[in-house]
Computed example of a mutant assay.
Amino acid sequence: MDQLLLVLVSGLASGAVYGLMGLGLVIIYRATDVVNFALASLSVVGLYAALTLYDSGLPLLPAALAAIAVTVGVGLTVRETVIRPLAHGELLSALVMTMGISLIAESVISTVWDDQPRLFPSLVEGSVSLGGAAIPTQSLLTIAVAAVAMALVAYLFGRTTIGSAMRAVAESAHTAQILGIGSQRIARIAWALGLGLAALAAFLYAPRAGLVPTVLSAPLFRAFAGIFLGGLTSMYGAVIGGLTVGVLDNLAASYVSGGYRDTFVFSFTILVLLIRPQGLFGVRTFQRV
């Protein structure tokens, strides 16, 4: 029982990271129709910048804020110079562009900082006893920080003017423009928010996994599994899907085999999509062809 509790908490901590990344992906997709494959690699750039500042004597929390700022700044620069000039509706081109940007970012990281594994400091040390299980404090902090971030995003979209504008653009950019809502301004805000959430997820994940240029590759694909499981257009679905993937991933690794964890997770996702193609919380759409 104690082992199960430890596995579930660890799974929720992993799922919180996948949920934050998935939420960032969905926010960007809904506002701009761009599936941003570069989101993870750009977040890693922020991590390396934060580690450099930390090694130079900056406390870890300001370094975390710097990581988010670097990720958002680089990401917005990429959007304005590479993604925005594409013609409207060039979704495949934008997708390929973000894949290319991801590879370029990883190459830049390897050139500037090298590709040797590094340790990344934890925000907190130690563990908390729950029952007979020693739960790492970092895992509990990850769950708490992710929960607060998700709650703030829900408040932003549900209770603020800018959130209403972002939802309007997500429903119809043309209609939003008629109503006087600047779609480009909203797109920049969506990219900044999505990248910031991904950078936060990266900062929570790196102490557990260490730091290499590709450290977020696996979490990115698990985040995609989560958003397809929950529904590509649903922010709540991205969070719940990410948490589900995290728990299933850890259960499979602990009670089946570590080598089959992704097989188990993606097989479950495929099974759900066969039954409900729009995901658990997505809205089914029909298109005349």
Rank of each mutant, 00 (worst) to 15 (best):
residue 163 G to C: 06
residue 134 A to V: 03
residue 91 L to Q: 14
residue 153 V to G: 04
residue 45 V to I: 15
residue 99 M to I: 15
residue 84 R to M: 05
residue 196 G to Q: 14
residue 119 L to R: 08
residue 242 G to Y: 15
residue 7 V to L: 10
residue 265 V to P: 06
residue 82 V to S: 12
residue 247 V to D: 07
residue 75 G to H: 09
residue 39 L to M: 08
residue 272 V to S: 09
residue 188 R to W: 07
residue 261 R to P: 01
residue 64 A to C: 05
residue 255 Y to E: 06
residue 42 L to D: 09
residue 219 P to C: 15
residue 85 P to T: 04
residue 8 L to G: 03
residue 104 I to V: 13
residue 237 G to P: 12
residue 67 A to T: 00
residue 43 S to N: 01
residue 11 G to A: 11
residue 169 V to Y: 01
residue 95 L to W: 15
residue 97 M to K: 00
residue 64 A to H: 07
residue 283 V to G: 12
residue 34 V to T: 11
residue 257 S to E: 07
residue 203 F to W: 08
residue 116 Q to G: 04
residue 157 F to Q: 03
residue 220 L to F: 15
residue 166 M to E: 01
residue 51 L to C: 04
residue 187 A to K: 04
residue 110 S to E: 06
residue 130 L to K: 01
residue 2 D to R: 12
residue 14 S to H: 07
residue 242 G to H: 14
residue 279 G to T: 03
residue 221 F to R: 02
residue 74 V to Q: 07
residue 28 I to R: 01
residue 281 F to K: 01
residue 275 I to F: 14
residue 273 L to V: 09
residue 185 R to S: 14
residue 187 A to F: 11
residue 33 D to P: 05
residue 264 F to E: 00
residue 207 P to D: 07
residue 180 G to S: 14
residue 210 G to A: 08
residue 81 T to A: 14
